[in-house]
Design a protein around this nucleic acid. Structure first.
Lengths: 346, 346
DNA sequence: CCACCGCATGCAAGCGTTTACATTAGTGGG
DNA sequence: CCCACTAATGTAAACGCTTGCATGCGGTGG
């Protein structure tokens, strides 16, 4: 039996009034509202989300799509978003969507991806989708468009939808400029592997910022100073060992496109007996929890706050404040620590 | 209009048949099934989860309750569980439930916790709950019991429900024994802070295993050799600096209750100019991604596989294989790497 | 004093499925 | 050739809420 019935009977009102009283929206007299709430509490009543969704078309649930579940950065974002959404009464359902790698042989991955779009996201389980670092092909874009639900992105821009993104060019310039300002001229760069993930723009963008900054300073860029890793500590470590032992180059500073790679760089430098900052300055990007611990200079992008911001955006769109599909810039900030220092004069 | 209607019309059958054909359960002739599937595909039809849930009482959704969203370990578990559940067609909705810290002043945390139990978990949005490292009070236990849904725990035992847990005593003994076998007698232990999280048994249990193992070997345990950290790299680092510089003690080996603390220990030893393995052997627990990178000897507990296993348990219970409420032991394995070595003879 | 208005509430029609039960057609044994 | 039985399908009643519309009521301005 419709459980709301029981509450209605106990409170001596109709189910309609119970519904209205508990939703808190439309006009219900304070006295009635109190009675209903008392009855609900006494019976331990909580609305059935299925029934409520079916009747109202609203689910009180937001889908969060993440490319990685094992990366510090995305978890920080998730944490921020989850908290804000939960406080607003929304559940979060989590979808894992690894970046399409474009590899022929990854049939399983492609199937999972297709299934996510064709099946999971279309069940109308979410009032809105919050997608982090999502790159879409046209069919996928169409699927999401058909949902007719707010769709908000973090790390865009994604054409046609509201996104929050970091200005990767500016961030890279900021990091590079910091090293230039310290007097460094042989600045290496560790970034993502452009072949590794199809369509993942960020590494290329940061590299462009790095090169532009060098160019502005009249420093010639050397392809040998750019290495690819995959955003992991191990990757940064390996790349740095190469950079610091290649006899053709003599970098005095390294700009890593993520803090995890920068931490790997610090460890590699130490293992090679180089003095971090003294012999080689290292700067990262992210604002990793461990940056403080390692004394890592970084461009903090406040990931947890990003999660909150993008969640707030979702809530705004759900509230109908029909924001237009724009791309907003996220804040970032240079945090100077011990891993960077002025170039030691030879 | 009931969209299933359209499919039914296009396929020339009743909605009941469409429902059956798409669910794939009951008897539908292959021909009809094909027609229905074609019609559904043509219309891009996907069942509305709300309607389906309301009618069937099943949601195809599993709630996963985690104590931390920013810890490597829990994310590894989540990753494993999410994948298995997604492959089985289940959505995962994520609930963040920080451990109750028992602090009077943490009203906000207590409210969040209460709200999770009283509101979120009771909306009948989940077919089952998968709880990781959950510690419940009686009222909470009652709430979850009232749900009448499968409730499975990882890291128990939780009285009355089916759990998978690591034998923390055995793990600690295994780690300690490894160090004893290498000839160490002054073995330090870094574990969690018992006051930090009310009711979180694991640190105490591991410590007990450590002490039992020492006792078995006839080695006297020294409270000075036990330090508390909070399962972070920073914590392990700080604790290790203390251990290695306290003039009253001379540990030649450290057993850290987590790999992250063990990594902190390695970094601390290095910073103090000690040779890891040569001067001080270090062993952790978890099987962290970075253990290989740091050459860390560890007791691997295969967190991602734990996630899969506990997810499988959920699926089994949902399939009605009414497993009884038992506590099953999870596998673990000593992985010896470079951070442990035989005691150097003085 | 009346017509009108707005607020609080009730009534009942959905919302889009699933599924128990009824119905029909086909099958093999007696 | 009939019957009992099974497999495939249809019929229609839930499922537990939300919400447009109707109703009743006290107050207000003319």
């Amino acid at each position: 039996m419709a459980k709301i019935q029981r509450v209605a009977e106990l409170a001596g009102v109709s189910t309609a009034t119970v519904s209205r009283a508990l939703a808190g929206k439309t006009s219900v007299s304070p006295a009635t509202k109190a009675k209903v709430e008392a009855a609900a509490k006494e019976l331990g009543y909580v609305v059935s989300s299925a029934a409520s969704s079916l009747a109202s078309g609203r689910t009180r649930n937001v889908g969060v799509v993440l490319p990685y579940l094992d990366s510090w950065f995305f978890m920080a974002v998730l944490k921020g978003a989850q908290r804000l959404l939960a406080d607003a009464g929304y559940d979060v359902t989590l979808y894992h969507l690894p970046p399409a790698n474009g590899l022929e042989e990854d049939i399983e991955g492609a199937q999972r991806r297709a299934r996510l779009f064709d099946e999971f996201l279309r069940r109308q389980r979410c009032d809105a989708i919050l997608a982090v670092n999502l790159e879409l092909d046209d069919a996928e874009r169409a699927t999401l468009g058909d949902l007719r639900r707010p769709l908000v992105g973090l790390g865009g821009p994604l054409p046609g939808l509201h996104t929050l993104s970091l200005d990767d060019t500016a961030v890279a310039r900021c990091a590079t400029q910091h090293l230039l300002d310290l007097g460094h001229r042989h600045i290496a760069h560790i970034t993502g592997d452009p072949d590794f993930e199809r369509d993942f723009q960020m590494p290329a963008t940061r590299r462009a910022g790095y090169e532009a900054s060098l160019a502005d300073a009249g420093v010639e860029s050397d392809p040998l100073l750019v290495r690819h890793a995959n955003f992991t500590i191990e990757g940064g470590y390996a790349a740095t060992k190469e950079l610091l032992t290649d006899p053709r180059i003599h970098p005095t500073a390294i700009f890593a496109a993520s803090d995890e790679m920068a931490i790997g760089a610090i460890l590699a430098a130490r293992d090679l007996g180089r003095d971090v900052a003294g012999d080689v300055s290292i700067i990262g990007v992210d604002g990793h929890d461990l940056a403080e611990f390692f004394g890592l200079t970084t461009i903090d992008q406040f990931p947890e706050r990003q999660g909150q911001q993008v969640a707030q955006l979702v809530l705004d769109e759900l509230a109908g404040d029909g924001v237009e599909a724009v791309d907003e810039a996220l804040p970032y900030q240079l945090v100077a620590r011990r891993s960077t220092a002025p170039l030691r004069q030879p």
